[in-house]
Design a protein around this nucleic acid. Structure first.
Lengths: 164, 164
DNA sequence: CCAAATTAGTTAGCATAGCTAACTATATTC
DNA sequence: GAATATAGTTAGCTATGCTAACTAATTTGG
């Protein structure tokens, strides 16, 4: 979050379809997809602020809540962040009593990090806010549109899992 | 993100459909949509780093390139950021010669900010990298899936425009 | 069995990005 | 012309990301 990303404020005019009538071309779908994802998250983002924790912390906490206890290195890998960054995020979460850190019995270098009840509760609260907001906006869609959107999200989610 | 957001690492188990057989329920679509958007952008994000400018700068530059010259206040509003934040972003872009700042002839308080040729070129380069990456990944979809995804993205983009 | 290499995490220090509060300078209003 | 409003900046805080250099613990290999 600080994260944000560059935006394309138009439909793709550069890179036009090489084959005109062969359905949507890859490049413009990619372009629109990117732009749309950015704008979607920008809206949703503000709901998360209500939890009082920053986005990186909420995200790490979420990994712990839904994925179970992890070592610092595992958490860093899951969040695609370097260890020093995760070290600080973990310190912040621990200070707020949202996680609990214990030593590994076998390997004194390792730490086990788990969400506390307080952490789980906070995360759920944030999720409720965010999802409620999104769901409220989606209410404006016609049933058929919602159905199509749902289908597409699943297609995309499945595709994402296949990427490295 | 620095940016980033909390993730839901499961399908919606809380808030199950109130009406079982009436198509996808709002809450789980909202949940999956959010999670998918996050993961999508996490992947794409790294491509942008190749430009050498941070995400906030690229995004502001993009507004200038595609939306034409703006005052600082307009830029801040477009980016949903406070003026002091935009002030620093503009300073950074100007230092890299990606934008050009001139005074308003009528009102000495105002500034006009426009992208330079260098700025436009940099942005296009970043866009090429990012979109090429995405498009490459989308190639793995079957034509029908791509078509559905495209449709859904347009539905969503239209919906987003209606939000405040 | 001990020295070297590897692994886990931390510390220090840098840059970006967000904010609020307080400021300067210019325009507008009364 | 004095009070007010508007446009941006400055100062200072927090959070997030990084790399480089460090400590401590474990593993490996001779």
């Amino acid at each position: 979050m600080a994260d944000d990303f560059s935006i394309n404020h138009q439909k793709s005019t550069i890179n036009n379809p090489p084959e005109p009538a062969a359905g949507p071309d890859l490049l413009s779908v990619a372009d629109r997809l990117h732009s749309t994802a950015i704008h979607l998250l920008r809206r949703v983002r503000k709901q998360d602020a209500a939890t009082g924790e920053g986005p990186a912390r909420l995200s790490a906490l979420s990994v712990l809540v839904f994925g179970g206890p992890k070592t610092l290195g595992e958490l860093a890998a899951a969040e695609q962040v370097k260890p020093p960054t995760m070290s600080r995020i973990v310190a912040g979460l621990a200070r707020s009593r949202l996680i609990e850190v214990t030593q590994d019995a076998k390997d004194a270098r390792r730490m086990h990090i788990r969400a506390t009840a307080k952490g789980t509760k906070l995360l759920q609260k944030g999720r409720q806010l965010r999802i409620a907001y999104l769901a409220h906006q989606l209410e404006q869609l016609r049933p058929q549109e919602l159905s199509r959107l749902s289908e597409a999200v699943e297609i995309l989610a499945e595709l994402l899992q296949k990427w490295s």
